[in-house]
Every structure is written in structure tokens, then in C-alpha cells.
Amino acid sequence: MAKSGTPQPVSWTRTYFRDVFNSGELLWNLTQREVRGKYKRTALGQLWSLANPIAAIIVYTFIFSVVFQVPAQIGDPSGLDNYALWLVCGLLPWLFFQSTITQGVRSIVDNSSLVQKVYFPRLVLPLSLTGAGVVNWSFEMVVLVIALSIFGAFVLPWLPMVALFMLVLAVFAAGLAMILAIANVFFRDLAYLLTVILQFWFYLTPILYPISLVDNQSERWGGLLGTPVTLADVYRLNPMEPYVSIFRDLLYHNTWPAPSAVIAALLWALGTFALGLFYFTKTEKRLAELI
């Protein structure tokens, strides 16, 4: 048996992944518990999942479209000219991502009694929260697609691509949630620090404003500190930037997303998920004693 902190045998890793695969029913039950329990005994039930996005859309639309008069983007080739719809196409992916990692970071600590008493692949804890988030997000996206269609967007042919990149973003969010969930076991302040980080992250992502404003400012500044690296280059290191761009292209503009955005989104998803799996399998056997 390997000592604590040393690389785990390949045979144990294979056994672990087999256990995860065989825990599909547990994952499904935990996901259902999250979906149903969140709005249990409420009159509106699942409709409450729309409350936060609608409130955010109203507030941000008033502040940025009416007060600051950020120009609405013209859909190309959809022809849409509506700031609220443009906003929500980028806001819903962000809200899903934010919800997944803020809940996922506490997924192990909040279930410490279960982790200490019963053996099961702990990986299903953050994955179940991701699954529940996807269910809520899908409900919100149905409403958005209906609204876009009413205002003249031709969304139907793009729905398979939308569903595909919803899955890609879910993989990225799940990978990051796994990493944060393990890190939170060692550093309990992380869950609180994350809320602060997300506030900065939100405004550094082109959700409320078009990325063209960043590009224009980048051209004015030129290379940073005398280097060929521009503000736009640094800005696009934000892993959520390609996802927002992709969803806006598909839903609002009704066009293919830029290949660079697609490649970046896939790399972030696969890389983060692989790192999360490695981190989990390395720490899994010690979680009960660490908590």
C-alpha cells in the first residue's frame, strides 16, 4: 500500500475510475436532490431559477444601456439590436459558471459527515452540483431561445452547437470546481476569497460591455511596458472570454464562432478537467482524515 503523499499505484487509479463509472445512479440521485431540494415547498418551484437572471438583466440594462448608454451590438447577420438580449446571451453562461464553482468549492466540506462515514467516489459531489447547474441553465436557455425567436433571431439551426458548448463549459466548470473543492479542504478561507475573486472576474469579462471597447483602448495604448504584448492580449487570457464570445455568436449573431475562441474553450475545458481529475485521484484516499 502506498504511503500518504506518494504517487498512487496505477491499479488503484483504475479501480477508482471504475468506481466512479459504477456510481452513475448515485450521481443521478445527488443531482436530482440538488435540483428538487433547492426550490422544495415553494409555490413557483423551478421558476425561481429565473428570478436572479431577470433581476440582473433589469439592473444591468438600466445602468449600462440607459445611464451609461453603452451601444447595443447589431447582430450580424441576425440583425438584432437589443442590449438586453445581447447582455443575457453572455450573462447566463457566466451565472452557470459562477454558481457551479461557488457551490462546488464547498461540496466536500459541506458533506464531511457523509465523506467520513461511507465510502463512495467523492468526485460525484462536485459533479452532481455541476449537473444540477446544467439542468437550471437549460431551463433558462429555453426561455432565452424563445425570447430571441420572438425578436427575430433564427436560433433553431444553432441549437446543437449551443448544447455542445454548454457541455464544454460544464466540463470546464466541473474541473475548476474539483480543484477548488480539494483546495478548500486545506484552506477553508478559499470559499470566502472566491466570492471576492468572482466580483473582479465578472467585470473583467466582456459581459456588460463589448470586447471592441477593450480592443479600441488596446490600440491607443500600444505595447505594454515597451513589449509587443497588448492590453487585448492580456485580456484574452481570461478563460471565460471565449465562452461568452461563442454563446453570443451562436445565439445573438447567429453565426459560427471564431476558430480561435473554439480552440481556447476546448483547451481550457480539457486542461482544467484533466488537472481536476489528477488532483482528486491524488487526494481522494486522504479526504476523510483531512476533513
Rank of each mutant, 00 (worst) to 15 (best):
L164I: 07
A132H: 08
F165Y: 09
V143E: 01
L148A: 07
V155N: 05
I146R: 04
F154G: 14
L144C: 02
L156T: 10
W137H: 15
V155G: 01
M161D: 14
V135I: 09
G152Y: 12
V134H: 10
L148I: 00
A147I: 05
A163L: 14
V162P: 06
F151D: 15
N136P: 05
M166W: 12
L156F: 15
S138K: 13
V134E: 04
G133Y: 10
L144P: 06
E140Q: 15
I150C: 05
L148D: 10
V155T: 00
I146E: 00
V162M: 08
G133T: 02
G152W: 07
M141H: 10
F165M: 06
S149G: 14
M141L: 00
M161Y: 15
V145M: 11
N136E: 12
V142K: 03
I146H: 04
S149M: 11
L144A: 07
L156K: 11
S149E: 02
W158E: 11
I150Q: 02
F151N: 14
V134P: 08
F165G: 08
F165T: 11
F154P: 07
G152H: 03
F151E: 15
A153P: 01
A147M: 04
L159N: 08
V135S: 13
A147W: 11
W158D: 06
S149R: 07
L148T: 08
E140P: 06
I150A: 02
V162T: 03
V145D: 09
L164M: 09
G152F: 11
G133I: 04
V162A: 07
V135W: 13
S138N: 04
G152V: 03
P157T: 13
S138C: 05
L156R: 11
P157M: 07
V134T: 13
L156G: 14
L156N: 12
A153E: 11
V142L: 08
M161C: 13
S138D: 05
L159V: 03
L156Y: 12
F154W: 14
V162R: 08
A132E: 00
L148G: 00
V162K: 06
L144K: 03
V142P: 00
V143S: 07
A163F: 10
V162D: 01
L164N: 06
S149N: 11
M166K: 12
I146S: 01
M161A: 15
G133K: 09
L144Y: 02
V134Q: 04
V145R: 04
V155D: 02
I150V: 05
M166G: 14
S138T: 09
A132D: 08
E140D: 14
V143K: 00
F154Y: 15
L164Y: 03
I150H: 04
A147N: 05
F165I: 09
L164P: 05
F165P: 11
F165V: 04
F151G: 09
L148N: 02
W137T: 13
M141K: 07
F151L: 15
A147C: 02
G133L: 10
W158I: 09
S149W: 03
L156D: 02
L159P: 07
